[in-house]
């Protein structure tokens, strides 16, 4: 666990941040929090440790992680993508329409991923080349996508997809939900990309100090576009899994997922100021958030508390992150 969560030495030089001891500490703290939540829930709710519920938690974590993993890369560049939820909405509706009209699953997958990719590309272009601040560019994009989806769907719902397609979201392999395998695959891909490839290292450098990255010859603009494209692609993938699980598509399908995805990244210890964070942290963050929300469900706490609790967790996560950074300096 520890060797993956430490940003490489190259980043330390750039940011002057003594990463290793702090990152071990941060990961340990989060694992302890995770263990405490699991312990509390298994003591307070009998339904918690049933295999049904555990598989359910894993499935939900997988979806949240896939969405949050792309967002992690964006936040590592000191950016933000507020459009991921609306991206899911449009991509899912496009895929649903294609699968209904052509019956072809591969075309539907292509449509979902393609729409996610395009949205990410536009976001990246607006931010890297037109210098629009990330939060306002992607916030504007959120409302544009929202409107386009509404116009496209006209308030209709599409439901009932072929079993082969639904398997992506609700199927099992050796008794384990298929999204969980996707989660593990993308965890591995994400770790290799960020730690072992040139592009991944560039992402850290761009986030830690953009000017220094530019001076050291990194093509900053194309790395920024890369980050938003990855975030868009992961939103496209998440939209397909979500669609397959729900077995129906509506205009507002992904709306409620932006805040949890950002929360998962921040709980996972990725800094909003860029250059610090890991994909394994995001997995822990997604697991913690899903467990908290699942626990609230099991203890039959009114679902209206969920946005409120998520909001508090976001602020608390950033606050504690700031505290631990301060302690290190």
């Amino acid at each position: 666990m520890t060797d993956h969560s430490a940003p490489s030495s190259n980043v330390q030089q750039v940011s002057g941040w003594s990463a290793l001891p702090n990152s071990v500490r941060v990961t340990l703290l989060r694992l302890i929090a995770l263990a405490l939540i699991v312990l509390t829930l298994s003591l307070t709710s009998e339904a918690f440790l049933t295999s049904n519920n555990v598989l359910n938690v894993l499935r939900q974590t997988a979806l949240l992680f896939l969405l949050a993993s792309g967002l992690t890369i964006v936040i590592l560049t000191a950016g933000l993508d507020l459009s991921v939820g609306a991206n899911i909405g449009l991509s899912a509706c496009l895929a649903a329409t294609i699968i209904k009209s052509t019956g072809s699953i591969s075309l539907a997958l292509l449509a979902g991923m393609g729409s996610g990719f395009l949205i990410g590309l536009i976001n990246g272009g607006l931010i890297a080349f037109l210098r629009i601040p990330p939060f306002i560019a992607t916030y504007g994009m959120l409302w544009i996508l929202h409107g386009v989806t509404y116009w496209f769907m006209g308030g209709e719902t599409i439901h009932g997809f072929p079993a082969d397609f639904r398997a992506i979201g609700s199927g099992y392999l050796w008794g384990i939900p298929i999204p969980v395998f996707l989660m593990l695959a993308f965890l591995l891909v994400g770790m290799i990309f960020l730690q072992r490839t040139r592009w991944g290292q560039d992402i850290y450098s761009v986030g830690a100090n953009r000017e220094a990255a530019r001076l050291s010859g990194i093509p900053v603009n194309s790395r920024l576009v890369l980050a938003y494209v990855m975030s868009g692609l992961m939103a496209g993938l998440a939209s397909l899994i979500f669609l397959a699980r729900l077995n129906s598509a509506e205009g507002d399908i992904g709306e409620a997922m932006t805040l949890p995805a950002i929360a998962a990244v921040l709980i996972g210890g990725t800094s909003l100021f860029g250059g610090v964070g890991t994909i394994t942290g995001t997995l822990i963050g997604a697991l913690i958030l899903t467990l908290v929300l699942n626990g609230m469900n099991l203890l039959s706490i009114n679902a209206s508390w969920q946005p409120l609790v998520t909001g508090v967790i976001v602020i608390a996560a950033v606050y504690f992150d700031n505290l631990s950074n301060k302690g290190d300096k």
């Binding site: 950002i262 909003l272 508390w305 946005p307 909001g311 602020i315 950033v318 700031n322």
Partner: peptide, 27 residues
Amino acid sequence: KLHIPPFVATLGTLGIAQGGALLVTDG
């Protein structure tokens, strides 16, 4: 005081206010 960037701080409090409105009215 907590040095949290405004767009994330207010995104968090957005969730809090939205949840509050749902709780007050029960939807």
